[in-house]
Amino acid sequence: MSGVKQRVPQIILTVVALLLIASAFVARPEGGSAPLGPRLLAIADQEFATWFSILAVFAFLMGGLNLVATHLAKIRERGPDRFYSLVTLVSFLVVLVIGTAKLGGPPGLQGDVTAPGSWLTAVFDAVLSPLHATLYSLLAFYIASASYRAFRARSLESSLLLGSALVVLLGRIPAGRHLTAWIPEPLAFLRVEELSLWILRVPNTAGQRALMIGIALGVIALAVRMIAGVEKDPRSGGDGS
């Protein structure tokens, strides 16, 4: 029975993956004169996308239920984080009610829950957006602290990183350009803005492309392993059972 339980998902995965790959290389049918095969593949492509959306809706329900269960348990256990859990639960339920009841907005099934003036839009604009902006603004300080650690010239690699970062930085600010404006025209490629552009266009692009080629091959290899059933189901045991 466990063999069947394992094989059925693998067969579904292989068939769906092969159909989706095939549909990427098959012409989009135009009109009723297209051959039956491409028409079926195009329909399958559309249907699978719809099914994924339906699954995602159920998954979202599962997530919501898990969130409520987890935080209710924390409140019941009277742990040190119970007040955070209480805030989370109250916020979750309040926004759920506001959104479901479409408070302040056009009512009915067709009413737009995000219409101007609706309570949900107000919550988004007055609470969620400022919170997002606050958290996002931390990035500026985190970038500074991470860069400080990364750019300390302790090895050849970090010295190169520091040097190229300095050149790119100077090349992007007006004051930096004035530093090397005295370099004569025949040697203009040594000016800091030209060096900055060169670093971005040549070594940076080469590195990025090498990375992208490797990533593409990695994705294909993982996909082939999954389609062929070589990749273990992550949910199976150490022996693959």
Partner: peptide, 30 residues
């Protein structure tokens, strides 16, 4: 783990022959 190494990590940690073989194929393609 940089780029493609992420996709090789699971196979590398568990070390079964078939998955390691796919890493070799990946390297040949590279």
């Amino acid at each position: 783990l940089l780029g493609e190494e992420l996709f090789a990590a699971g196979a590398s940690l568990e070390g079964d022959a078939a998955r390691l073989g796919s890493l070799r194929g990946q390297d040949l393609c590279k």
